[in-house]
Design a binder for these strands. Sequence first.
RNA 1: GGUCCCGUAGCUCAGUUGGAUAGAGCAACAGCCUUCUAAGCUGUGGGUCGCUGGUUCGAAUCCAGCCGGGAUCACCA
Length: 595
Amino acid sequence: MKFEQHLIDLTIEAIHSIFGIEIEAKLVSVQKTNLIYRNEGDFTIVVFPFTRFSKKSPEETAQMLGDYLAAHSEIIESYGVVKGFLNLRILSKYWVGMIQKEAEETALPVDNREKILIEFSSPNTNKPLHLGHIRNNLLGWSVSEILKANGHDVVRVNLVNDRGIHICKSMLAWEKWGKGETPESSGIKGDHLAGKYYVLFDQYYKEEIKSLIASGLTEEEAKQQAPLMQEAREMLKKWEDNDAEVMQLWNTMNGWVYEGFDVTYKQMGISFDKTYYESQTWQKGKSLVEDALKNGNCYQKDDQSVWVDLTAEGLDEKILLRSDGTSVYMTQDLGTAYIRHNEHQPKQMIYVVGNEQNYHFDVLKLVLQKKFGFQWAESIFHLSYGMVELPEGKMKSREGTVVDADDLMEVMIQTAQTTTEELGKTLNFDLDEQTQLYQVLAMGALKYFILKVDPVKNIVFNPAESIDFNGHTGPFIQYTHARICSLMKKAGESETASNPFSSQTPITQKERQLIQLLYEYPAVVQEAGQRLSPALIANYAFELAKEYNQFYHESPVLKESDADIRQMRLGISAFTAGIIKSAMHLLGIEVPERM
RNA sequence: GGUCCCGUAGCUCAGUUGGAUAGAGCAACAGCCUUCUAAGCUGUGGGUCGCUGGUUCGAAUCCAGCCGGGAUCACCA
């Protein structure tokens, strides 16, 4: 920051001149003045570190420093001392100019052209998306938008887990109890249809286990020997052998699921640049492991299973190939990472995956790097996020306590509609506009609710109470934007000022705060990019909207007289609307022009 | 048990490289719509920043130990 730097330089000079001591810039702390003391300054210098050699009290030291700075800098209007804090008030005519220049200098790069791959969503094809996926998808989308805003070349990637025993269960159940039923014939969305049969499988499977246990088997034995499970395994085997009939069923059912996912993703407002399917990458992992076995970086046990030893790295031994030679989750992920890196050569590979898989990614990275010798594995970053839990505890798909993504979004839209109608906001909206608005508000509320929380934290989600439209919410910010739009419209085109901040215009305290906040936006986006944190953007947007609302209410009605002030306020409003729109875009949230 | 994460107001969350009297929203109470959108604004009440010690002029923030909650340590994905 140029402005802070100027004050730091000046302070170093002052210390040298007053006390005859050269100090390091590190010792000088310049910060925005705490809001409580804003009436006496814009910036604050902390003088405690100087008392060591000033041999005076903090107050006296601050006083001396203040005297010097006021005498030697033309930009300082006045200063005040509170304990060891020196508060500096900057002359308005300099303040606006400098803060504007600063913003230009920290402006976001248009082009950083670092290629960054980001994987998110990663669904299974045996059931529809749920609340957990919603957090994942929103995070992934927002982070990728933030990285784009920082000038990076972002590739959004989805990895569909389309093979394995889980989808075979759905297929088997459909063959047994639902043959002939299609999304068209039943009117059920494709992914929900697959999910229906997955649940059905589990029900009958449980019954089988129960009766087997009753006939004297242990629970373990029962689980293994249940006829349904054995049939599912056979089906998986047939799938791996490329059996024509099974493959056809697999293709059909997965096709239904993808159609269903498309609808959900569209409703969520997200999309991908590339979709990978595990059915197309799992073999690569297997061959990588086989190579490592030959090179002695993995080892084989007596039962033919293949392992990797990570005890030297402080982790455990990890299985990579089962005794029957088939691959496990880790094996597939190794292959996928390899293929992806070869295809894109990215500078960084981000995986948006829940924190329950922290260990998995530690292992993945270590194996690639230390055992397979791929230096690029360093570029793997696991963007880990906390679980979404319900008030009753964790969601359990088998107990039917999962919150379905489609259902939740539907409920949100209905709530948006009732709330809006109760307020009588859409009386002169036509039907299309109404539908559009409810959609935008509902998704805004949901997305904001999820994204405003730091990703590392778990979220407790109460479907009935959690999502509101008042207060610290997406709709509040959307509302602020809509109100500005309406204001600008009334003011008329001619008055949308291009350069609102003429240095002659007097500025109130509230206006200073708001302007300062507006110009911080690029820095916030940069930090959000470094920390991969949509929450930073979300909280900034709220603060800005709130600040604007206060400004709006404090400002007297704009009359035709006072053209300068009127012009400036309109300028601030237009500027605010622009930043809100941009910030919300980074969260994947649309802002309506009226609501 | 080992490793990792979390703990801030009744609830949901912010809290910058350590800085001033720890902030919002919700909920509660009291006000504000002849004037640019009241999904808003203003005010009141509400805190042992999990506990204890350490470093520092100064700790919610850094360090150590403990307490509480969660995740993970599968021939599941």
